[in-house]
């Protein structure tokens, strides 16, 4: 049992490393080797930018909605390029829409969790407040 566990460990670690390299841009370097003489050296050096900068929200409380209607909020401790998140002191919140057949139980504490990027629908840093419509006055002026 322990032997099979250990082999699984090694395999997963390799898979993980592979994915990191894939997103780090080394994958592009591989293409470059196949087609020498291409002038995309600058593009190769530049680290791949993510769509939004989650570093700003590290150690901030984030509210997350998932596919299927679950919701959670917790302190952002880490993330990767695929929008997988590590949240600490996480609480799963009861679902807002009561017509869901799978209406969630009460609020519960989960602690340190990993949220899967592909399942995330919405991310909202806590403390964001709705503002009044900034275009209303402009429309009135005309």
């Amino acid at each position: 049992m322990s032997a099979s566990g250990a082999s699984g460990h090694g395999g997963a670690a390799r898979g993980h490393g592979g994915s990191e390299r894939g997103h780090g841009g080394a994958d592009r370097g591989h293409h470059h080797q196949n087609r020498p003489g291409q002038s995309d050296r600058n593009a190769e050096k530049k680290p791949k930018e993510t769509l939004f900068d989650l570093a700003r929200y590290l150690d901030k409380v984030m509210h997350v909605k998932f596919v299927g209607g679950r919701e959670a909020s917790g302190t952002l401790k880490g993330y990767d390029a695929l929008l997988n998140l590590v949240l600490d002191c996480t609480t799963e919140l009861p679902r807002g829409d009561s017509d869901e057949p799978t209406r969630s139980e009460e609020k519960r504490e989960l602690g340190l969790v990993v949220c899967r990027g592909p399942s995330i629908v919405m991310l909202c840093p806590e403390g964001m407040e709705p503002i009044s419509n900034p275009f209303v006055s402009a429309a009135d002026g005309e």
Partner: peptide, 13 residues
């Protein structure tokens, strides 16, 4: 930052 997949890797076993 704490990488999500790295954290899961630590959970093996």
């Amino acid at each position: 930052t704490l990488l999500p997949l790295e954290l899961i890797d630590k959970c093996i076993g």
